[in-house]
Design a protein around this nucleic acid. Structure first.
Lengths: 219, 219
DNA sequence: ATAAAATTTTAGGCAAATCTAAAAATCAAA
DNA sequence: TTTGATTTTTAGATTTGCCTAAAATTTTAT
């Protein structure tokens, strides 16, 4: 029931990679964890023996139900701390991720549940990512990727799925945050970039790479 | 400047033991850290090489200025988190110590300074222990040990220097907390226990062992 | 279909922090 | 002041998580 910091990091990263692409490879995990493939092979062996992941040699990994539950617990802690850091300690959204990476490993059920209550049971973290509840339930919203939004349709930015400091800083400089109105004016075929209107005023251009990280709800 | 969790624990414990008895022995450190003397010898060797402690083989340890500064930083984090846990998350004073033991090792200067500001720059933690400020300064109050308080002199409980769960729970059950009025009615020569009046009403008996852990300010 | 390229695993090591058992140094008491 | 008890240190292992280099396997491209 209690896992080491290292094991927790593996579980969390596998959970995130899994979201995007069913099976997770040794190399992608190594890259995400900034470690070497050989180390991944060892640790995943251990996690398999603890029944936290399904693992076929030379094929890939997938979390078991048990592993999924553990990962959601870690993500709950991470996102609650992010919310605390942003709302109470006034950190910017590009700063909170790194700090929460450490706080998330303090794992006392009661502490986290009290923190949750203190914060008023928030459902979304500062990046718009859903916070699992006590029982690991995720609130799912009907968001679509900005790249899927039809032209001339009003929407609100609701989630940014990449925690990179430089992306978040860039968005903040452009006044784009969770809840900001956004609308696509034109799709540029050449580089697949988008001309968008922000806050019903400024019109700017977003590269495909950035647009892929932004999720919106149609209003 | 950045120390491992283990090194930090050594520094913190040495700081506390030093307070009571100038030089710290290998055995006492081992006991306090729940480890073996052999392990202490190794780690203290390392801390000495980092110039964090003065250390004479077979004699004992004492923190250097550098080591003292590091210890105060750790204690600052610990006590600020304790204050947070008690004031904001409503944990009882016997619960906060253990939780803060983990939170204290998240060491980002900015995080701690923001937390300090969020809490309103508290000067005392829930046990009445002073919280070092940004620069490691400790507010010193003119407290005396309850055992030194003259008879029939009004005082306020201002500090409890032992974090043991059972002591704190015991005090809470007797309605003794920081700020509670207290007065010695009688010293019992036989077992050195004290008859004291709490809150200007209830009169109870305190063993010498307990009285030694309680500090008061005369009013 | 097979050779080259890429991925994954194994083998053997390393560093940190711990342990036990035994040796060395110090202290204490007759 | 010498001997026995206590404390401290050394020596050698263990565990965790990582590493590099080399071997095994799978994939890809001709």
């Amino acid at each position: 029931m209690k896992y080491s910091v290292s094991e927790e990091n593996y579980l969390k990263v596998i959970y995130h990679l899994q979201d995007q692409s069913g099976l997770v490879s040794t190399t992608s995990l190594a890259k995400a964890l900034k470690t070497k493939p050989a180390s991944v092979t060892e640790m995943t062996k251990k996690l398999k023996s603890k029944k936290l992941l399904h693992y076929q040699p030379y094929r890939g990994f997938r979390l078991t139900q048990e592993g999924n539950k553990a990962a959601l617990g870690i993500i709950r802690r991470h996102r609650l701390w992010e919310y605390f850091l942003a709302e109470k300690l006034r950190f910017s959204w590009e700063e909170v991720h790194e700090l929460a990476e450490e706080l998330e490993h303090v794992r006392h059920k009661k502490l986290i549940d009290r923190l949750d209550a203190f914060l008023g049971f928030p459902r979304l973290d500062p990046h718009g990512d859903p916070i699992p509840d006590k029982d690991g339930q995720l609130a799912t919203a009907d968001v679509i990727c900005l790249t899927e939004l039809p032209e001339n349709t009003s929407a609100l930015i609701s989630r940014v799925t990449n925690q990179s400091f430089s992306l978040l800083e860039m968005l903040r400089q452009r006044n784009m945050k969770i809840g900001t109105p956004i609308e696509i004016l034109k799709r540029n075929a050449f580089d697949e970039s988008l001309d968008v209107r922000i806050n019903r005023q400024r019109s700017i251009n977003l590269s495909k790479t950035i647009a892929e990280q932004i999720f919106v709800v149609v209003t």
